[in-house]
Design a protein around this nucleic acid. Structure first.
Lengths: 360, 360
DNA sequence: GGGACGTACTAAAACCTTTTATAAGCTTCC
DNA sequence: GGAAGCTTATAAAAGGTTTTAGTACGTCCC
């Protein structure tokens, strides 16, 4: 409503070829040209050779339909609004890649906004997307508090908001995969790095871990538990917390980290402390981001199919928009354990010389 | 032109409040309402109290102007197209953050597309952005081969395309800052990690380094030079190349890496080899991404003001669009050396026991 | 030779804004 | 009392597309 008014009109020459241009060119009317180009029902009665003439002319004149006029008339934009917390981390980027791929294949487009956990910015941007005619929303790692007015799919949103479809990892299964793996290798003293309070997966994942641990008779000890803080999206985020675990001098033979980057940061801390992975400590990450396979040693991790999750989110929201498929409150995604080289059996030698006993 | 046709009309209820709604409500005409709400020149003759009534009613009915109708008429979208190579790395994310900030403050919006170095996708998306009415382009880390039809600013684009404004770091100054720093600490045997061929800064930065090295009488030896490969955007990318440097058994007392993540990966490799930083090897990174300050030890690095570069890019393109300021082919950005703890003087002890002599 | 039907289109409305030209009603002034 | 001028609006066009209803013309059939 209030835009900065500019004196000088930019007046782009643009693609000034309209339906009328073509119509005049051929001695027809815009309506006919439109029907032919869109092959609409009205084009039934247009003879083949006229259609061809029209298509030919459109190509020749390099006709591009005016998106705004069309949208105004059709009330369809074929556009999704993607609301992300941040770009620049592997998690969000992979989900967005999946979204991008699906939408591109299906002739949809998307607008991305980032809100950095600022509720006011979120509000502003949601409104803006609405104005720009998006027909649905996908959020990632964003805590929606209220229902948006359009079909909405939340990737890793755990608020269970009415009308919003949540794409969530089956965290219980994930916890089971990781802990069962560690248990089968003989690990009993397992340390944990929990996620930041703000990260929307933190709560559910931790709950699942606690439940599963109980089922598997694995004891979770507060002395072996730390919680991430900060928003750094490099392994640097895990390093100090792993050091902290070591400093507590409570022995442990394995670590289950909240995500790959904190796991990788921990590898480093262990290295520095003279501990070998996996001989002295086994480490399990979470996500299977691209870095995981290239860490040293390559990281055993619970794989979230992030690309796939993005695709599913996109498909779900498009189906909702097009009236196919109906609303479900939740879609569970199956995690997968990727065993690499950061986990191994508890060695008898290590039973004496566990992490906690080594000088940190 | 060919969209998937949907049977069921979604028929959003949308903000079905138009100018006509308000006009009818007040017994006026849409034209009057429009004039009042926009405070256009035509509103001169509308008395204050009528204006107030109109504004009041608009607020009450929650009127939102239809973006598409308005754009159709005004031929302005106040939108910039941002073409990025990838999101998910700190570099692109920070530049985009800067862009976002400037544009938001100035009532512009932006559409982001990513092309992952796929020229076809780039082409498709550029066309799509044009269709969507963007009034200018900003590219990051993208090698444009031809001029786009609108004002264009390239961040870290080095093709010097006619009509495109390049925002480039003063690489000579950057090289000077880093090498002078190392030289002043007594380093003579300096290893280098070059950037990937695809990364658009690689070429210029390396040239600058070579020039400056010559000026400072620092010898660049091929045995102490490696080149990054791959697209991983975590420190994992630097690790193997640092190992490779060590494996060559040529002594060096300092490393100047292409970017922070490869520098951090190198730190790790050195650590692993039992070398201390900075006592045994000094390491200088590039970029000053958020992780740099939190690495171990905190990284000395050449700071690129990425946020600022994004802001400048946005400002430049907006100025171009609005007819303020005129085209310049290049805007140089001053780097800054941030000295942290990964660099230190060459110690006499180290002179005997340099990196190359240690078992890798 | 005239009604029915088919072919090949056209005309016009609708989507919602902005803007320009114009009009209606009132006051003022000589 | 009528022209001039001011105030307060309005009507209509334009922007480009899609769609519905309709028209003009020809052919066929009995």
């Amino acid at each position: 409503m209030t835009q900065p008014s500019t004196k000088k009109q930019p007046l782009r020459s643009q693609s000034r070829v309209t339906l009328k241009t073509i119509a005049d060119h051929l001695g027809l009317t815009p309506g006919t040209v439109s029907a032919a180009l869109n092959n609409s029902p009205a084009a039934r009665s247009i003879p083949e050779h006229t259609k061809n003439r029209i298509i030919e002319a459109a190509k020749e004149l390099n006709y591009r339909p005016n998106f705004f006029a069309r949208t105004l008339r059709l009330r369809r934009t074929y556009t999704i609004g993607v609301i992300a917390e941040e770009i620049g981390d592997a998690y969000g980027a992979m989900v967005i890649s999946g979204i991008e791929e699906y939408l591109r294949m299906n002739n949809y487009f998307f607008l991305t906004v980032i809100h950095r956990h600022d509720p006011k910015l979120l509000q502003t941007y949601a409104q803006m997307l609405l104005t720009r005619g998006v027909e649905g929303f996908i959020t990632t790692d964003t805590s929606l508090t209220e229902k948006l007015a359009l079909p909405t799919v939340a990737v890793a949103g755990h608020q269970r908001v009415e009308g919003v479809t949540n794409i969530v990892l089956d965290h219980k299964r994930a916890a089971h995969l990781a802990l069962e793996h560690l248990k089968s290798l003989g690990h009993k003293d397992i340390a944990f790095i929990k996620g930041q309070t703000l990260s929307s997966d933190s709560f559910d994942r931790w709950n699942a871990i606690c439940e599963v641990a109980q089922e598997l008779k694995i004891c979770i000890r507060p002395e072996l538990t730390v919680q991430l803080e900060g928003t750094d999206s490099t392994p640097g985020i895990g390093y100090p917390f792993a050091k902290q675990l070591l400093a507590r001098k409570h022995p442990f033979t394995a670590l289950f980290a909240y995500n790959d980057i904190s796991a990788i940061g921990s590898l480093w801390a262990f290295h520095e402390a003279g501990l070998r992975v996996p001989e002295d400590i086994s480490v399990v990450g979470f996500d299977d981001t691209p870095g995981a396979a290239f860490s040293n040693p390559p990281l055993t991790t619970v794989r979230q199919p992030l690309l796939r999750m993005g695709q599913i989110a996109a498909q779900t929201v498009v189906d909702l928009i097009e009236g196919r498929g109906e609303y479900v409150p939740e879609i569970a995604i199956e995690p997968e354990l990727v065993v690499r080289e950061s986990t191994g059996p508890v060695s008898s030698r290590r039973e004496q010389s566990t992490a906690g006993n080594v000088k940190a």
